[in-house]
Design a protein around this nucleic acid. Structure first.
Lengths: 346, 346
DNA sequence: TTGAAAGCGCTAACAT
DNA sequence: ATGTTAGCGCTTTCAA
């Protein structure tokens, strides 16, 4: 290969010292005479020199690179969040690169390791494993997206899971549902479960419903999960007596469940009610349209960046949490059972 | 902040030289006595040391990091390709990070710049700008995905655009279509256009069709583009006499066009024929199902990795090209006009 | 405004 | 098997 050319070669050609070259190429704006500037720039051009950011970063301990770590970049929720975050970050002079964990703990660990390598100035992530200790141990500013558990020590933004879950549950209650099931995922984290499920259980208790009247299904938050969910529901003996509605952990799951129910001859919005969470584009396009809780994904992305930037500016800041409630979007996937609540509950 | 701890501190605590520590932490397997090994590991643990990969990479000129640069990670084609590539790469000991250019030339330039920074060992990318010179200039092994133009100097994999386009065109011809339009995008690259459009034009000429019988629409390869396309078609005076079928540049566009046609009361598969390209999941789920050309996305991802790994092993290799033909998947979006070809052409 | 020199944390000859 | 030493390319005091 061609010998790598460094500021030394540039300096030599320009007839200046390498310090001067450094002053030119680093934007830190040390004072350089116009004459020297021209000479250096000419030399850079002639040699086709590009600065070795690795070496520079090594020296300055800064990379200007931010890692965005998400569980499923193909999901519109994450891709849109990422887009918003990326825009904001690039405006602030950072480059952004994303790590897709694919809901895999193993892959997530790899990224944790990567993040410890000092190659990034900061990290915005959604943790699958909810391994808070691992995050703190990485030794770089991190912002957590998505409130999984109550996290005290790390900056957090996202939807307020309990509020959002309550909103959906209340809506189902108000439309006359009394057999409200929940479909969510486990992937390893007990504490994650507890937040959604606990809200569900609390709700049941509060409304004086027997725990058995609120089934909890555990499936993947994916299209595949939707099909699994429907299979499980329909396999229940006399399922109509056990579930009149399902709150799904996300829209991907809900939309897929709607399709699967339809195929089985069960019409969502009439025979069963489905509520999703996220409000991805497909929620509006599918038939019947999915009633769901909209998350402010761009806002969450920019909020994450703000939190990160603030911490980068002042590492001693106490951990902050900026959660958003989410907004109910009514479409056609929930039936009006206000007339028949009594018999459904019998 | 706490003082960063380096191998020097570890060496001191373990009572060995820093070389020994280096031998332990770098997997290069220099020989270390079991005793020293234990001492070093104990010291590492006690101090909570983690290796500064930035410094190591600086020294070795290797990062073990690969950048995957794609135009739209939310598109299943790219996300699945990325997943396959990531799997293969991680098996080979590399970490993978993705850059989303969002079809933006500006963002693409940023990533080109980032790629020159020596922070990555290699690059797998789809170029929006088709700026081959920029890619060569980056000075790191790169594999191009998606044959845009005829590229000579860079390893390439993807679908053979001409073959795939011909397959679709032939199918439309065989089903009796004689007003075959094409809908594709421009985003800056003339040479990109030429490959699909040229195939289209060649086809028209070969079949003895007047150039005017094969309209070319230029729209975004997105949901938005689908709506735009339909608007443009329906705005044509007596459009049914001008287009009986449309070959869409990708499935996202095609699926969206199907929905938009349907809304306008035009039934795809009956009133107009649509063929897509990619075979994303939505192609199977939408009604009517989309007839499309399936691209082997996982295979493309792993092929890209193979090409890259081979080049990493031997930089002097001549540029190679591994293109796949794509496979026609027949669903319901193409009408059978074999009985009425004559009158449609009149 | 500029140059000389030190050093970031690590690896890689080369000795021993 | 282990220690010594010399940098990798850059930034950054410190003098001049």
């Amino acid at each position: 290969m061609k010998p790598t050319i460094s500021i030394i070669e540039v300096a030599r050609l320009a007839g200046v010292s390498k310090s001067t070259v450094s002053r030119v190429i680093s934007d830190r704006g040390g004072s350089v005479s116009p004459k020297a500037l021209d000479a250096v720039n000419a030399a850079i051009k002639e040699l086709g020199y590009t600065r070795n950011d690795l070496a520079a970063g090594f020296r300055t301990q800064r990379s200007n690179l931010i890692l965005l770590m998400v569980p499923d970049i193909a999901n519109p929720f994450w891709s849109e969040m990422a887009r918003a975050a990326q825009d904001r970050l690039e405006d602030s002079g950072y480059s952004v690169v994303v790590g897709n964990t694919d809901w895999s703990e193993q892959r997530e660990s790899r990224y944790y390791e990567l993040a410890r390598s000092r190659r990034f100035d900061g990290l915005i992530l959604n943790s699958v494993t909810d391994n808070i200790a691992a995050i703190s141990d990485m030794g770089l500013p991190a912002v957590l997206i998505g409130e999984r558990a109550l996290v005290q020590d790390i900056d957090t933004t996202g939807t307020d899971t309990r509020v959002a879950t309550r909103t959906a549950l209340d809506y189902l209650w108000d439309t006359g549902h009394r057999r409200i099931a929940i479909a969510t995922t486990e992937h390893g984290s007990e504490r994650f479960l507890s937040l959604r499920r606990k809200t569900h259980a609390d709700f049941l208790a509060e409304r004086g419903l027997a725990p058995g009247s609120g089934l909890a299904f555990s499936v993947k938050l994916s299209e595949e999960g939707g099909r699994d969910l429907v299979r499980e529901v329909l396999a229940l003996p006399d399922w109509r007596a056990k579930v009149d509605s399902i709150l799904c952990g996300n829209d991907l799951l809900a939309v897929s469940a709607i399709a699967a129910f339809l195929e089985a001859g069960v019409v969502p919005g009439r025979d069963i009610s489905i509520v999703g969470m996220d409000d991805i584009p497909a929620a509006a396009h599918c038939r019947p349209g999915l009633t769901t809780i909209r998350k402010p994904r761009s806002l969450i992305g920019t909020t994450a960046v703000d939190l990160l930037l603030e911490r980068l500016g002042n590492p001693e800041l106490p951990a902050r949490s900026r959660l958003y409630p989410g907004e109910l979007v009514v479409r056609e996937s929930v039936a009006d059972r206000t007339g028949s609540a009594r018999e459904a509950g019998a």
